[in-house]
Design a protein around this nucleic acid. Structure first.
Lengths: 156, 156
DNA sequence: GCAAATATTTCGTTCGGTCGAACTAAAGAC
DNA sequence: GTCTTTAGTTCGACCGAACGAAATATTTGC
C-alpha cells in the first residue's frame, strides 16, 4: 500500500505547513505582546535576546548584530539602561570598550512573566507521551537550525 | 522504574522549554527579516497577516485589530497601497466604508519567497516518519491554540 | 614617545509613524 | 426632509529612533 502511505505522508506534510505557519504567526504576536507590555520596541527586544543568549557584549558587537550605527547603539543602550534591563560595565582590559551586561534579576522577572505560561505548557504536554515529546524536541531542534540558516540567507 | 521514567519525562519537558524558546526567537527573527526584505514595518506586516487570514476588511476593522487611530489607519493603508500590497474598494452597500483588499498576486509573490524554504522543510522532514510528523502536527496545533489564548490574555 | 587606529559618546538633524481635531460624505432616525 | 450618527480623510504637530560628523578617550604600532 505504497500509494496510501504516500498520500498519508503528503497530507501530513501539507498540514505541517499550515499549522507551522499559524504557529509562527501566533508566536510573533505573542512576542510582540510581551515586549509591548514591558515598554520595549522591536530593537530593544532583539538586543535583550542577544544579551541573554550570548552574555555581555560590547557596543560594537551590538552594532554588528543589530545592524545599527554606533551612535544609535549608544541611544539603544541608554534606553535599556534607563529601563533597568542592562548596565554598562568597563571592559577589564580595554578601557575604550563598554560591556553591556544584562540584568539577570530583570530577566528573571521577565521569566516570571512566563511562569503561568510554562505551567500551561506542561499541562498541555500531559496529552503527549514522553516518546512523543522527544520526537517534538528533535523536530523543533532541526527546524530551528534550518530557520536560523534561512534567516542568515535573507539578511546577508 | 517509575523514577527513571519521571526523570526522563522531566528532562524532555525541560528540553522542550529550551528548544521551544530558541525556536520562538528564531521565528521572530525570520519574520522580521522577511518583512524588512519587503520594506514592511511591523504594523504593515501584521495588517497583511490579518487581511490574508480574514479577507477584505474595512478601515474601521483594521483600526480595531491594530489598535490604531482612524487617521493612522488611513496612512497605513496609503503606504500598503503605494507598495502594491492592497487596494481600496468601495463597499458594495455602504458607500461611506472602504474595503481594504489584499493583492493576491503580491501575496503569492511573497509565498514564492517561501518556496525554497518550503523545499528545505520537506527535505528536513525526511528524517521523520509519517507517524512522527503527525505527532508534531498535533503538538503544534495544541501549542498554537494555547499561545493564542496567552496572547489574548496579555493584550486585553 | 608619538602617530595612526579603534571604541564610544555627543550633538544637531532628519524622517517615519502616530495622534487629535476639524472636515466631508453617506446612512439612519424620527 | 432635517438632524444625528458613523466612516473615512486631511491637516498640522509631535515624538521616538535613527543617522553622520565631530569630539573624546584609549590602545596599538613603529
Amino acid at each position: 500500500m505504497a500509494e496510501t502511505d504516500d498520500a498519508r505522508r503528503a497530507a501530513a506534510l501539507e498540514r505541517l505547513m499550515t499549522v507551522g505557519r499559524q504557529n509562527s504567526a501566533v508566536t510573533v504576536m505573542f512576542h510582540s505582546a510581551i515586549a509591548a507590555k514591558q515598554g520595549l520596541n522591536a530593537t530593544e527586544g532583539k538586543t535583550l535576546d542577544y544579551l541573554q543568549r550570548q552574555g555581555p557584549l560590547t557596543a560594537k558587537d551590538l552594532a554588528e548584530l543589530t545592524g545599527l550605527a554606533p551612535a544609535s547603539v549608544t541611544g539603544l543602550v541608554d534606553r535599556l539602561e534607563a529601563k533597568g534591563f542592562v548596565r554598562r560595565v568597563k571592559h577589564p582590559t580595554d578601557k575604550r570598550r563598554v560591556l553591556v551586561e544584562p540584568n539577570e534579576a530583570k530577566l528573571a522577572e521577565l521569566a516570571g512573566f512566563f511562569e503561568d505560561w510554562t505551567r500551561d505548557i506542561v499541562e498541555v504536554c500531559a496529552q503527549f507521551t514522553t516518546d512523543e515529546l522527544e520526537t517534538v524536541n528533535r523536530f523543533l531542534a532541526v527546524m530551528t537550525e534550518q530557520q536560523r540558516k534561512a534567516t542568515a540567507r535573507l539578511t546577508d
